[in-house]
């Protein structure tokens, strides 16, 4: 039987209240949202917060809304809401693709967008997808709001730019014209963490790629990004050859490690295939073909 160490529990009444509680209880307090990463870690005693500040009552952190030329995800938006969202289906198919393969429907009923990013697990799919999208993370403290590009948000495995008395309150994703996106993951079984996963966001001008965002999960890519492959695609023709080359470059530059999910060469192979495939599908979606 797995039992977390003892801790205090505080139900935050609202955002200001949550920030005050986090400040009062100090660096060993942790906010809890869906709890589907934190509670398993607490059961294994890998995390031993002294106080949990429950932010599930913070309705101001909900909702997926179009805000000018961006889409705003409240930090407490559950994975299931992302998957069901018409706005996401229309503008950000990469997130729909990713959500379909994140854990399972029951976990998706609890887990949140903000919690996924803050967990900063190197295999986490939304981090890769948001990196590909060039999203911005909104972080709130008692002094106000600041924004951090998602590509600067992760400081390393399980480390983020969020201080102990701050909360991620939203994620903003730009809406770009003539753009398509896609995500694909190889997993050992349904609901597992990725062996390797890739997401692509491709903007076209005619048959030319004007901007490409490529995110990778589980293969040691810094900030979940395949920067060299993105660079290679800029200005390239949107052809199978270009996308295969992007995959080759991404496979070369990522830094997977061998583990129970597979050896290094296999993971590199997957990166090559998945990057090419997702770029191809993203371009097709940009052209309105799928």
């Amino acid at each position: 039987m797995q039992v977390p160490a003892t801790f205090g529990y505080e139900l935050a009444p609202d955002l200001a209240g949550a920030l005050a509680l986090l400040a009062r209880h100090g660096p060993d307090a942790r906010p809890i949202a869906g709890g589907h990463s934190l509670l398993p870690m607490m059961k294994l005693r890998l995390a031993e917060p002294t106080v949990l500040v429950d932010i599930n009552g913070l309705t101001e952190l909900g909702g997926i809304t179009v805000d000018g030329d961006a889409i705003r995800f409240g930090a407490m938006v559950r994975h299931a809401e992302v998957l069901d969202s018409a706005v996401v289906a229309e503008h950000l198919p990469i997130l729909r693709d990713a959500e379909r393969v994140i854990a399972d429907p029951l976990v998706r009923n609890r887990g949140t967008v903000g919690g996924s990013l803050c967990q900063a697990d190197p295999s986490e799919d939304l981090s890769a997808a948001f990196s590909a999208l060039g999203a911005t993370v909104v972080i709130t403290s008692r002094d106000g709001e600041r924004t951090v590009p998602v590509r600067e948000f992760h400081r390393g495995p399980y480390e983020t730019a969020v201080a102990h008395d701050e909360l991620v309150t939203a994620v903003r994703v730009p809406i770009r014209p003539a753009t398509g996106s896609a995500y694909e993951k190889v997993e050992r079984r349904t609901g597992d963490w990725a062996v390797a996963a890739a997401g692509a966001v491709v903007s076209l001008d005619g048959h030319t790629v004007v901007r490409a965002g490529i995110g990778l999960a589980a293969v040691g890519a810094e900030h979940f990004v395949a920067a060299e492959a993105e660079e290679a695609l800029r200005g390239a023709p949107a052809t199978a050859e270009s996308f295969a080359e992007a995959g080759r470059i991404a496979a070369e530059h990522c830094r997977p490690t061998a583990d129970q999910r597979g050896p290094v060469d296999y993971k590199r192979h997957l990166v090559g295939v998945l990057v090419a495939r997702t770029c191809h599908r993203a371009a097709a979606r940009a052209r309105g073909e799928v």
Binding site: L11, L39, D54, P105, V107, N109, R110
Partner: peptide, 13 residues
């Protein structure tokens, strides 16, 4: 109303 895995929800929640 929402199905959840109760081994990963605190009773206080």
């Amino acid at each position: 109303g929402v199905p959840v895995k109760s081994c990963t929800v605190l009773a206080v929640m």
